[in-house]
């Protein structure tokens, strides 16, 4: 079920058939990145799978343990959930011996909220419970606004928002990039604890520059990699891996503030192939085309009233 950009445009075009107005084809302009946006660069090739980011995340956000299997002795979620905001997953193939290799290899991937440039959840939420910070671009949740409809879960292309199914008074749960730590001048817990710099916190524009630097590295040569935060000044020396020439999140779903580098195709790591606009943008376009300022509905209502009155008079 891979929908490519071509399909997306076709969808857009077919959606436009509905419209009387030609500008609908162009739709609203693509949203651009906020200049002070904050994000994370996750470099799968640097990740050693220690899961300290998961521990740090649970501690920083006061999240409960989650158990799979008969023994409740590990916090071992198998996916993001209402109890887990951040998870390290492992790709394994064949004998699983070689890092970042598709065949007989393994690789790690960190999953968490992508903090999209044009977040689907924010677009879809009927009660504005999910909002994108105007400065940092962090997508946060307001439980007092939320009605629990779970439309955010339907529309999120990355399957990030989760719902507390077992609670009588449930909430939507998702990573909020440790917003409560940022106001204290700290950084996201997963990044501050990451020993190798695989999870790197920083302004998205700097992180994008860093991805450019890493893409140009010669595989096998030693380089310095910043750890924790891009401006921390602390570095670790690692051998550069063979990166695939693609930064996931640069354009996916309109771009995300969490960026990925990896040594193997991202779809193997469970990251979906997405067009460069979020699907909600298309839904929004159709919506705005029809309902902008409620002009079309009001005109339609006027016409309907006329028709109804005419019929009524004839019957009388």
């Amino acid at each position: 079920m891979e929908i490519k950009r071509r399909d997306f445009l076709k969808g857009l075009a077919s959606g436009a058939l509905l419209a009387v107005a030609p500008p609908a084809l162009a739709g609203s302009p693509k949203k651009s990145r906020l200049p002070d946006a904050l994000g994370i660069l996750y470099d799968s090739t640097l990740c050693v799978g220690c899961q300290v980011c998961m521990v740090a995340c649970k501690k920083a956000n006061n999240m409960p343990d989650e158990h799979y299997g008969p023994q409740k002795i590990w916090d071992n979620p198998i996916d993001l959930s209402a109890k887990t905001l951040n998870i390290i997953k492992e790709y394994e193939n064949g004998n699983g011996k070689y890092k970042d290799r598709k065949i007989d290899g393994y690789a790690f991937v960190k999953r968490q909220c992508m903090h999209c440039v044009d977040p689907s959840c924010v677009s879809a939420c009927p009660a504005s419970a999910l909002t994108k910070d105007r400065k940092t671009g962090i997508v946060t949740y307001n439980k007092d606004a939320c009605i629990g409809c779970r439309y955010c879960e339907i529309v999120c292309p990355f399957n990030i928002p989760k719902f507390q199914w077992e609670e009588p008074f449930p909430q939507i749960v998702k990573c909020q990039l440790c917003s409560h730590l940022l106001v204290k001048g700290e950084i996201a817990a997963c990044c501050s604890e990451c020993p190798t710099g695989a999870s790197l916190f920083g302004p998205v524009k700097d992180l994008l520059k860093e991805t450019g630097r890493r893409q140009k590295m010669t595989p096998g040569k030693q380089y310095d990699f910043p750890i924790s935060s891009i401006s921390s000044g602390k570095t670790q020396t690692h051998k550069a891996a063979r990166y695939i020439p693609h930064v996931y999140g640069e354009n996916e779903a309109g771009g995300t503030q969490v960026l990925y580098l990896a040594g193997m195709p991202f779809n193997r790591l469970g990251l979906p192939e997405l067009p460069d606009r979020p699907y909600t943008a298309l839904a929004e376009n159709i919506q705005h085309m029809l309902y902008k300022g409620m002009i079309l509905p009001i005109v339609a209502l006027g016409g309907l009233i006329f028709l109804v009155k005419r019929t009524g008079e004839k019957e009388e």
Binding site: A16, I154, Y279
Partner: peptide
């Protein structure tokens, strides 16, 4: 119908359409 347009790649292309 528009609601499921937003579901995007999660909906099979047999049903997902701008129409």
């Amino acid at each position: 119908g528009t609601m499921m347009i937003a579901a995007g790649q999660k909906l099979s292309p047999l049903w997902w359409t701008g129409l």
